[in-house]
Design a protein around this nucleic acid. Structure first.
Lengths: 115, 115
DNA sequence: TTTATTACTACGTCTGTTGTAGTAATAACA
DNA sequence: TGTTATTACTACAACAGACGTAGTAATAAA
């Protein structure tokens, strides 16, 4: 299982990716991230909510209340135009990072194909 | 240019990769990282030295003094057996992380091929 | 003895992640 | 009416790797 530190900075991209399809809330987003990751990664609750706070403070997502009738009301998040731009920027940064890091994988490790 | 935060945790892998070929010291290692990265990344001096401290404390590298005759003596680093194991582990973790993160790149972004 | 050069070293700050714990709102139950 | 269960957050402090600013150590040349 991959640690979050490996993926530091990518949790925001994960959340934004989920919100590209439709508005969603905490629990649902975390389950969707788990599904998309293929079970290879689970975002921690606190990591998730602190990311929401940050994303909203920076205008990358907007929130509104749902009208649930059981338990506390859910906070739904919607991706903004700025959020879409951030997502795209993160994707491009990722493509570059991948290229760079790949250069530091030795030929021997490449042939041991752990992919 | 990629930021270090994107690559957080991978500086150690970069250093270990350089040391796989031969023992080396601060300045030389940083230049080699820059070369391997294809100019796409430069490790900061403080990041480099704090990584050395950590790697040595954890037994992943061993150090010895060079016998320079100009300026302060260089500290050379040599990768240990444990360091090689860490390098391999990092490479495998990387392969997994790559797979996971790639799943969060939308089809649209993939076709905009920024690779 | 001063200056230049190389090679570190100290120290404090920042940011995303995370553990532990607690709160808010509603429903079901006794 | 009071307690418990459930869902959904929220507060707060700690950690670790990165990194900026500045300073020190050792040597040679002027």
């Amino acid at each position: 299982m991959i640690t979050s530190d490996t993926l530091r900075g990518y949790n925001e991209m994960f959340i934004l990716f989920v919100l590209l399809s439709n508005d969603s809330y905490g629990y649902e987003i975390s389950k969707e991230i788990e599904r998309v990751a293929g079970g290879g990664y689970t975002i921690k609750e606190t990591t998730l909510y602190s990311a929401f706070t940050r994303l909203e403070a920076n205008g990358h997502v907007a929130s509104y209340y749902g009208d649930e009738t059981f338990g506390k009301r859910r906070t739904y998040y919607k991706i903004t135009k700025e959020g879409r731009a951030l997502y795209q920027a993160k994707c491009r940064e990722w493509a570059q990072a991948k290229t760079v890091i790949d250069r530091f994988v030795s030929e021997e490790e490449k042939s041991n194909g752990s992919d």
